[in-house]
Amino acid sequence: MAAPHRQSRPSNALFAAPYLVVFVALLVVPLCWGVYLSLQKADLFGLYGYTGWTNYARVLGDALFWQAVRNTVVFVAVTVPVLVAIGLFLGLALNARTRGAAFMRGVYFSSTVLSVTIVTLIWRFVFIPGDGLLSLAFEAMGWPPIGFLSTQGWSLFSVGVATVWWCLGLPMILILAALQQIPGDLYEAAALDNASRWRTFTRVTLPQIRNTLILVATIQIVMQFQLFGQAQLMTNGGPNGTSRPMVLYIYRAAFENWDVGQGAAASELLFLIILVAAMGQFWITNRGNKA
């Protein structure tokens, strides 16, 4: 008689082993190594001894670090809802089996396949003063020009616009996939009950794709906390550090100042922040689910 398929056997672990080996080698080991480094005085070329919590104290006492944290939190708080909202809007708008919709899905997804270098180059053409698209538009309207990449406030906004444009494809596709999973009979039932479009949307569509929305938000929170390339290439964190995200702070510490210990300490703090934010978001949405 065959063994019940649910029965657990040690040899089953073999199936998970390839993934686990890679996971441990590429994630767990570097994570532990990072914690170790953060407690050392270290540059890229060697370790100079255990320094305890000194690196953490230096990071936490650094006004630039807190500025980077603030920038990153603001960036996440603004871009993630925008990405989810526009992704949902596009998903709904393009959830049709027509050629036009299929084409537009391709168009909206296309920016996602570009590298960050290309994305920032494109948006530089839009934002740069003088010959930039917006600059020319402002000139045509007779408005005073704005230094989008070099003015406090506008620089982070500009990075955000480029990011939303770049990252929009994934939320749209995930939401679209979820929308297409909704059984048609639910809509039929709603139609029979004479439900309005809004009511159908809030009572049928949204509850059905709720889990996907949570997934999209969680992925985006984790991704946007790691903002780096766009900020480095478009504004280099400026002016006055007002668009410098945490990863750029870490990069500066480790690669420009060669202070790997400080960079590692800041990385561990970023790890904790992302963990708390993602878990917090997950907890809040799940609590609502059970209520």
């Binding site: 740069i128 003063p129 003088g130 010959d131 020009p145 230094g147 990449l149 070099s150 003015t151």
Partner: peptide, 12 residues
């Protein structure tokens, strides 16, 4: 001039 980055300043 204000707000110009390196390539913009060279072109400018």
């Amino acid at each position: 001039t204000t707000d110009m980055d390196y390539p913009a300043a060279v072109a400018g």
